[in-house]
Amino acid sequence: MAYSDKVLDHYNNPRNVGSLDKGSDKVGTGVVGAPECGDVMKLQIEVEGDTIVDAKFKTFGCGSAIASSSLATEWIKGKTIDEALAINNTQIVAELALPPVKIHCSVLAEDAIKAAVSDFKAKRAEEASKHTEGAQQ
């Protein structure tokens, strides 16, 4: 199977590879995987207010999975978390010209964004409840 130029570009020159501080209150971490191929993808976002100011990923998987997550981090940087949640896997498929057998890679990237956002929201909610408790004391 031939990869599209855009997949090859992201594969050879992935954007935003790396890690953010998982323990930070501002950072949301999402890890997702595809059991059938064993691919795993970790995507992290750093949020200021409601805006994603930084995003990093680490993916173990095929070229399409790497490209999908690389593209996802590129797209969500600078967006609000709600805008990031609106990103759909079909947009990734279209941008990278993924063939049908690789659509699950784009689903993985979409799931990773959602997992990272939900981790961040959970942290924020926990933080908020701590503050309320603190205020009550």
């Binding site: 999402g30 995987g33 059991p35 795993v40 970790k42 680490k58 173990f60 981790d119």
Partner: peptide, 24 residues
């Protein structure tokens, strides 16, 4: 089915990431 139940707990997937890091 396989498709119904795909997602694994975060802690497990973190472990898989770590295995892959050793392999890499």
């Amino acid at each position: 089915s396989r498709d119904d139940e795909r997602q694994m707990p975060q802690a497990f997937l973190m472990e898989v990431m770590e295995w892959n890091e050793v392999l890499e």
